[in-house]
Design a protein around this nucleic acid. Structure first.
Lengths: 233, 233
DNA sequence: CGTTATGTTGACCTCCTTCAAAGGCTGTGG
DNA sequence: CCACAGCCTTTGAAGGAGGTCAACATAACG
């Protein structure tokens, strides 16, 4: 994870002002001047696939905004298994618990190579108190986390495994993604609360039924309508 | 649902200042003067068991703090089933999505007779912007929702039904509760993502094994240690 | 080229659902 | 007071869904 923004040679600081995802993330309400004022302590990190952003139970000095890639938040269970409780995509924020607590509640791991901004909690707390639009954005992000958690309960943890898998594929919006966009069978299991083997069997069955196809580029093409049918059945 | 606080004859307004749960809820940071200033539009509602506080998809003008009782937040699924995604206890807040959205995301129903305060969203939005302690309390509440949602994923939607039920009973803290504290078998099913029959079978089996006992008062007494063992296995 | 992680498949068995029926409890009306 | 309806709970039997254990394939990587 290489830091960029605080490196003087890096042109990222000016880039930050025109960041594609800036409008979707926390600092949407800030002027360029305001932005520059608080940019100093913010690092832009490149997170390779499978590397750990932070660990459950660690002291939590920073939160992270996702610029690109895919981050999974997982929880280690008492019996040694683990469960993925959220997937973070560009525009999402990780580690918000840092604003009201001391430690991270999950372990954050890059499912795909990701590009994130690391923001010290103090910066966000200060901005939250001084800028009402940042504050509003923060509330919205928080609600977003709740909504996604609800989705994991109602869509990915309810009903037969086949329907859950269909909903997962729909959630991932599998069409047009790069090959590595798809999580491993093991991750699918951790997402849906089923075993790796069952995940594999269902995916194989989907392929046989023509619901999914691996393009010659390695990409996965889904029959959205067919999956939606399974998801509701 | 009878309104009290805005009824001039009611002594609830002064009572509000000494509300037992006030310290746990949103207005913990307010002085008595500040509190009186915003008390006007707040209604204290008595919510009989099984009555609906608000419905999923409805316009959301209010949020609610729970003073006593137990509220379930349920979601209607596309296939006609329903899933309970959260349980609200005294000190919890319902309908926070009203602060960043227009409609309720769940249907809120009293599992036990409840006592709640209905607060117009505008009041909370104003307080959130003017009083930093209220603001902080709000963030904490939001994080609370996320944490509880995570708990529903990791504890109540993961593993065999028996372990989930054990975790549910532990979560409910069954000892010392009044008889009606226990949800119906159907609700247990909706909480755990299993059928009513399975919930009944597991509870019956727990009783046979001596893990739970119905006291002569009708209360449920649990073998916490034994349940914890099941929950982790 | 072996080594290791990941995906696939089979056999078997357990767990859970489904469908069905019966028992208990409460409230209502004759 | 009893009969009856309605609701929740319990229990049974049967079948299917998913877990477990194991073998094997495949691909990536040193």
């Amino acid at each position: 994870m290489k830091a960029n923004c605080t490196n003087p040679e890096w042109i990222g600081r000016s880039k930050c002002a025109v960041c594609d995802v800036r409008n979707f993330v926390l600092f949407a309400g800030l002027s360029v001047d305001e932005l520059n004022a608080i940019l100093q302590p913010i690092d832009n990190l490149h997170v390779p696939q499978h590397s750990v952003l932070y660990e459950q139970g660690e002291p939590a000095p920073n939160l992270f905004t996702v610029r690109s890639g895919l981050i999974k938040l997982k929880v280690d269970l008492s019996n040694g298994c683990q469960r993925i409780v959220r997937l973070l995509r560009p525009g999402d924020v990780a580690g918000m618990e840092t604003l009201v607590g001391e430690r991270y509640h999950h372990t954050a791991i890059a499912l795909q190579t990701a590009d994130v901004c690391r923001i010290p909690r103090d910066v966000v707390i200060r901005l939250d108190q001084t800028n009402s639009r940042v504050h509003q954005a923060l509330l919205r992000r928080w609600q977003n986390s709740v909504d996604q958690a609800d989705h994991f309960i109602t869509a990915l943890s309810t009903g037969p495994a086949e329907a859950r898998m269909a909903r997962l594929l729909i959630t991932l919006g599998c069409t047009g993604d790069q090959p590595e966009a798809m999580p491993t069978r093991e991750d699918m299991g951790a997402l849906l609360g089923i075993t790796t083997e069952t995940a594999s069997r269902i995916m194989a069955e989907f392929r046989r039924r023509g619901l999914i196809q691996t393009d010659r580029g390695g990409e996965l093409v889904c029959d959205h309508a067919g999956l939606a049918l399974l998801a509701n059945g």
